[in-house]
């Protein structure tokens, strides 16, 4: 009778270490059972806060960009109109209110209109420029006006942030 293919092929024996490892595993079964019951410990809650305080957090808050842009452009725009001091018939209070309303409108529509930050910059700057060319100064000093504008810009940034959180 012809030999089967299996009989013709060479036969191999595993190294002795294989059985030794199996035997070790069988012997260690009670140990492994006990090890699986060892307690798990929780670190103190404070540990995370200590870690977080030392790791930089660069998480992007999308609203920061338009807010920063709004503040910067408002300050630049008002600087320009204060410098130009071109006059028509508006009081400085009316002019402030006008600028604030325009900036608020811009901030509110920023998200819904899908504008890019660059487009938003350009729009706010154009509005400020337009305001500057039509403004007639009253009796305030430039320093007072500048301080006022900065306060308004800060207020605008805060309002924008609250509206979009």
């Amino acid at each position: 009778m012809a030999k089967s293919l299996n009989d013709k092929l060479p036969q191999y024996s595993p190294p002795e270490s294989v059985w030794e490892n199996i035997e070790q595993g069988l012997n260690d079964a009670p140990l492994q059972e006990a090890l699986s019951k060892l307690p798990i410990y929780e670190p103190p809650v404070q540990t995370w806060f200590d870690i977080a305080a030392q790791v930089p957090n660069y998480q992007i808050h999308w609203w920061r960009y338009p807010v920063a842009a709004s503040v910067a452009v408002l300050i630049i725009g008002f600087g320009e109109y204060l410098a130009s001091k071109q006059a028509e018939n508006l009081t400085i209070g009316q002019s402030y209110a006008h600028i604030q309303a325009l900036a608020q409108q811009e901030a509110t529509t920023f998200k819904s209109s899908n504008k890019t930050i660059k487009q938003s910059h350009a729009n706010i700057q154009a509005l400020a420029q337009q305001e500057a060319t039509t403004f007639k100064s009253d009796n305030k000093t430039i320093e007072q006006s500048h301080a006022h504008i900065q306060a308004l810009a800060q207020q605008e940034a805060t309002t924008f942030k609250l509206n979009h959180q």
Binding site: E20, E23, Q24, N27, D28, A29, P30, L31, E33, A34, L35, K37, L38
Partner: peptide, 12 residues
């Protein structure tokens, strides 16, 4: 030689 842990359960 492998350690013989016996047949009794080990107290964790």
């Amino acid at each position: 030689n492998p350690v013989d842990w016996g047949n009794d359960a080990i107290d964790a």
